[in-house]
């Protein structure tokens, strides 16, 4: 494996916030990454730094072995699709899709046409009159058809309905299989994209808290539920990521369980259940919310998607 991105001690401070805090990160070639975290965790800033759009306070960044800032050799191989992308007032989707190939050497016009049909994107309507979902579709199409060796999608799905999102995931997988490249997908919809990811990076409060192979992360935690006494007995001496209590009943999220430990838990009358990637991320990053609301962490996380 070859690293396409290497960041060391990367830090970016704004007036009173440290958006990215001493991040060490390596992104390997031809892999689909998930960049996950809460709103304001530093995902967008990190991607802006890696694409030379934002300037690092300290630390080093190497993309394709070079500094990305003002570097045409590097940037011509990067596609950065962001939810907040602005277009000129009088632009239509056709204007965007006509000019994108001038910048991306690997652009596939046929693929772009197919995606336009898939997403039913009107080409002649002014962009400011498009729906939020259609606006997102322009970004998704640009990102996919550019076939850039390093493609960032920063929450590209805003306003896209479930069908359109599924089209996005399917086309991404298909095209990635035929034209492998490095894709970094920043998203809140963790359960939807979980199976697409090969590697998961979770950022919280500007720092990377999980940087792990998606497969080793899957099943790295389990939920056990039962009487409070049985749960307490089982979790004694184990690291507990999260726990909740309701009267005499309790649930706890613990680390990976071996087959023997699972058997032991069932023998003690406990229910053993899986922890989804989304729950795992919520449990890992909910630490900064007050304890009283942590039980709602999962729901508040979902709400952020529509914010």
């Amino acid at each position: 494996m070859t690293a396409v991105v290497e960041a060391r001690g990367l830090t970016k401070r704004y007036k009173n916030v440290t958006a990215v805090d001493h991040v060490d990160l390596t992104i390997e070639e031809n892999t689909i990454y998930g960049l996950l975290g809460r709103n304001g965790a530093g995902k967008t800033t990190l991607m802006q730094l890696l694409t030379g759009q934002e300037f690092a306070g300290s630390g080093s960044i190497r993309v394709f072995g070079e500094d990305p800032v003002e570097n045409a050799r590097v940037l011509s191989r990067i596609s950065f699709i962001k939810e907040s992308q602005k277009y000129p007032e009088d632009f239509t989707a056709r204007h965007v899709l006509r000019s994108a190939p001038w910048f991306f050497p690997e652009w596939d016009a046929e693929f772009a046409d197919r995606l336009v049909a898939d997403f039913r994107l009107p080409l002649k309507t002014r962009i400011k009159k498009l729906s939020r979902g259609q606006l997102s579709a322009i970004g998704v199409i640009t990102g996919l058809a550019s076939r850039a060796p390093l493609t960032f999608f920063d929450e590209p799905y805003l306003g896209l309905d479930a069908v359109a999102r599924q089209i996005f995931y399917d086309r991404l997988l298909e095209d990635y299989a035929e034209h492998p490249r490095t894709v970094v997908l920043s998203t809140h919809l963790i359960d939807e994209v979980g199976d697409l990811l090969e590697h998961v990076i979770v950022i919280d409060d500007g720092a990377i808290v999980i940087d792990q192979d998606a497969e080793s992360l899957r099943g790295s935690a389990s939920t056990i539920a039962g009487t409070a006494a049985a749960v307490d007995a089982f979790t004694a001496g184990r690291e507990v990521l999260h726990s909740e209590r309701l009267g005499g009943l309790a649930t706890a999220t613990v680390g990976r369980l071996s087959a023997a430990e699972r058997a032991e838990a069932s023998a003690a009358g406990l229910e053993v259940g899986p922890v989804s990637l989304q729950q795992l991320v919520v449990r890992t990053t909910a630490g900064s919310v007050p304890a009283a609301t942590s039980a709602d962490a999962s729901t508040s996380f979902d709400k952020e998607q529509s914010a």
Binding site: T2, E29, N30, F64, A72, R77, H179, R181
Partner: peptide, 15 residues
């Protein structure tokens, strides 16, 4: 199949 475009992470040609 091996990648069709970017076989090495280094930069082949400057645009």
């Amino acid at each position: 199949s091996p990648p069709a475009t970017a076989t090495a992470a280094g930069i082949a040609d400057a645009p």
